[in-house]
Design a protein around this nucleic acid. Sequence first.
DNA 1: TCAAAAGTGTTAGATTTACACCCATGA
DNA 2: TCATGGGTGTAAATCTAACACTTTTGA
Lengths: 224, 224
Amino acid sequence: MKYYEGYTKVLVSVDCIIFGFDEGKLKILIGRRKYNPGRGEWSLYGGFVAADEDVDDAAKRTLYELTGMRHIYMNQVGAFGRVDRDPGERVVSIAYYALINVSEYDEKLRLEHGLEWVDVDNIPQMYSDHNEMVSKAHRLMQDKLKTEPIGFRLLPHLFTLTQLQRLYEVVYGAELDKRNFRKRVKDMDFIEKTELIDKKSSKRGAYLYRFNRRIYDEEPNFKM
Amino acid sequence: MKYYEGYTKVLVSVDCIIFGFDEGKLKILIGRRKYNPGRGEWSLYGGFVAADEDVDDAAKRTLYELTGMRHIYMNQVGAFGRVDRDPGERVVSIAYYALINVSEYDEKLRLEHGLEWVDVDNIPQMYSDHNEMVSKAHRLMQDKLKTEPIGFRLLPHLFTLTQLQRLYEVVYGAELDKRNFRKRVKDMDFIEKTELIDKKSSKRGAYLYRFNRRIYDEEPNFKM
DNA sequence: TCAAAAGTGTTAGATTTACACCCATGA
DNA sequence: TCATGGGTGTAAATCTAACACTTTTGA
């Protein structure tokens, strides 16, 4: 039973902007296209949406293929639908951004897929409209970071306040005052101090903190 | 020349959430579905994306069909892509919201299309995932209103400060202090006072203001 | 012993909020 | 004349931003 006769169907794909925080920089994971059109050009990792698959699920599947991780934090960036955006054939693509903790990410998978981490401030020219996707994803992620505690998705489970501050500085592109920053953190009960000390990043050592989701869900007073 | 063999193609549509400000209320324009599936259910106005048409252009075309107006302020809400979202057939839909000045809108067209203005605080159950689309559009529009002067798109070319204040109150869902509101407006040079007086809404009469885009573009100091 | 990162409070300035009365006019 | 919406300023409270020194320890 066909209801909608006479309209053209098109391919729908998903493209993933995967953010990671590494060496004090915000980075995304990109690779070189393996096939034509555009073989060899820098590109986001993506895939086509299957007939019996929700678009969101296609994005989750694509992220899983790439990282081996499930339950990754993910948000839709939007649909990109210019007629000529893909030189091969008409494809409408839905972009998603995802945040991962680089230290949990399996390097082997990265190499298998031929992917590189590149600094968001130094993105090369990419295939089709992928640069636009990245800019929009970056902007949306920055906005989200101001109103929701998603930064923790980019950090190890345990982190120091200096790491957290660097993360905010890098995403906002501005330096923050250490004392003011720590004051604000102290007001957020869901950022829990542990008794553990990190000795990697300084001689003196720094307390490790963790994000407590239960406390956040009860009292989500967040403002950054 | 086919590059992407073996992947399923699907219908892509656009759906429009058209906001208007009327009788001191924020409203959207919806109608009853004329055909199956879902004949008779409340629904957004939409249409399919043509083979040679950008998705954004499909939204503009749809808005033009509906309103007879061009250059309508419009933003993408996002893609809605659940497999079973449309009971007829698989359709991925890209939602857009638009802001129009109700007083410029031709009532004849509204009646021709069988559309109604309904209060955003009192939206009936709608076809498929259209209620979700409306909620997300409303949220995005509220956020945008805080950082960009898009409210003017909902008002007549000339408006009183009381009208402007009501608009903000209705969109935010909160009352604002008259004196504080007017102070902020005074700081925004691009909201220009004219010598014209509106006599419709009060006996005393109120000065009419207008949005000056040129001044805004030069000095966009906006914060609401 | 010294370099490097961790940790800690106070104050001035800016912003935000609360609040009440007179004005002009048409009915 | 009075009911209705138009128009105006000030002060307290809150929030934000600027700022410098001591601690610990591994090399």
